[in-house]
Design a protein around this nucleic acid. Structure first.
Lengths: 145, 145
DNA sequence: TAAATAAATCGGAATGATTCCTAATTAAGA
DNA sequence: TCTTAATTAGGAATCATTCCGATTTATTTA
């Protein structure tokens, strides 16, 4: 999603386009697929708009998330992370360096099958695998070597 | 996992078998697949051992989780939940009543494929689908209907 | 069976992320 | 430009969880 399409999403939904929100959008764009947390987003966005407060950052991220403009991810022992990638994918979370990689797969479970078997209708997914990323595996290996 | 096998797991790993831990194990057994949270476990286990403290409950659940005796699950806007079912499965989480259902599937992503494509080696999984359970779907339908 | 000790426990304080509150500000439409 | 509902700032409050230090206890060993 481009900056422009995020802004037009805001307008379409009657949300105001404020300097604070633009600063946060800019940070989200800059961060690419790195799944930043609120504190990092706040720190970076505050450089662009000095008056920005942490509570506004949270309010904004929640608002964006509620409107499907971004996605909120929650993990063990880490602050929430915010994800710009809205396609169905698996998050590969490195337990050593906390890096989060995206692993794109086709829709791996058939929602129709789930609803038929269990009565449960799926609206959203969170698919996470934990382990070690390539870099951390190599480092672990050389330490233990 | 039976109560006895949990206890023998403790002994095997040099962990002490205390009345507090037995109370917590009993609660975990009683709760079946309902994925209780720390506060519920504490409340129920305290009835069995009146001296039990909340911090001990957390310490115990963390210890069990660290040793693979149970599994800790974390969700949005809910306290951690603890899971006795150690087989790979998908958690179906009802957004309305917060019920958590298990949906057993064969291992849906091939770890070898992931490591080959990304260098990431998987050690653990958390697979969650959000939506509405059968009961909540019916209730929503009758309200709107 | 008693002594030794490492582990476990208690309870309260501390933490950290997030939400809540209220007054002041402001974007956007009339 | 005026109006107003939305947004914001900043600080207090919340909630789950962890940390701490002193005490107790399960288990080992003599």
């Amino acid at each position: 999603m481009t900056k422009e399409s995020m802004i037009s999403q805001l307008r379409k939904r009657g949300l105001k386009v404020t300097p604070q929100r633009l600063a946060i959008i800019d940070v989200l764009m800059e961060q690419g697929n790195s799944h930043p947390g609120a504190s990092l987003i706040y720190k970076k966005a505050k450089k662009k708009r000095k008056s920005l407060s942490l509570s506004t950052t949270y309010a904004t991220l929640n608002e964006f998330s509620r409107h499907g403009i971004i996605k909120t991810l929650q993990f063990d022992k880490m602050e929430d992370r915010y994800d710009r990638n809205l396609e169905e994918h698996i998050n590969l979370i490195c337990e050593r360096c906390k890096k989060i990689l995206d692993y794109n797969v086709p829709f791996i479970v058939d929602p129709k099958r789930v609803v038929k078997k269990t009565g449960f209708s799926i609206t959203d997914a969170r698919l996470e695998y934990y382990g070690l990323c390539r870099e951390c595996r190599e480092e672990e290996r050389s330490i233990k070597g």
